[in-house]
Computed example of a mutant assay.
Amino acid sequence: MRPRFLSPLLRPWCRRLSTACFPLAELRGLLRLRGPNPRSFVQGLVTNDAEQLKDGAMYAHLLNVQGRSLYDVLLYSVPEPQGGSHDLLLECDITAMNAIQQHLQVYNFRKKIELRPCPELSIWAVIQEKPDPPVVTPTPPALLCAPDPRGPVMGYRLVAQTGQDIREILSGAKLGNVRDYSRHRYQHGIPEGVKDLPPGEALPLESNLVYMNGVSFSKGCYIGQELTARTHHTGIIRKRLVPVRLSSSLSADCAGMEITTASGKSAGKFRAGVEELGLALLRLAHMKEELRITPGGGAVISVEASVPGWWPSPGDGV
Rank of each mutant, 00 (worst) to 15 (best):
D55Q: 10
R39N: 14
S40L: 14
K54T: 10
A50K: 07
M58E: 13
A60H: 02
Q66P: 02
N48C: 06
G56H: 10
A60M: 05
F41N: 12
S40A: 15
R68T: 03
S40N: 13
Q66K: 12
N37M: 09
Q43S: 08
Q43A: 15
Y59R: 09
T47P: 07
G56F: 13
Q52N: 09
V65Y: 02
Q52R: 14
L62D: 02
R39A: 14
L45Y: 07
T47F: 05
G44T: 06
H61W: 08
D55H: 08
Y59W: 15
F41L: 06
V65K: 01
V42I: 14
M58G: 07
S69L: 06
V42L: 12
D49I: 06
G67H: 05
D49C: 07
V65L: 01
Q52K: 09
D55P: 04
S69N: 06
G44Q: 01
L63G: 12
F41W: 14
Q52W: 10
L53M: 13
N64T: 07
N48M: 03
A60T: 04
S69W: 01
S40M: 10
D55S: 12
G67D: 05
V46C: 15
R68S: 00
A60G: 03
V42F: 11
M58R: 04
L53T: 02
R68C: 04
V46K: 06
L53G: 07
Q52A: 15
A57R: 13
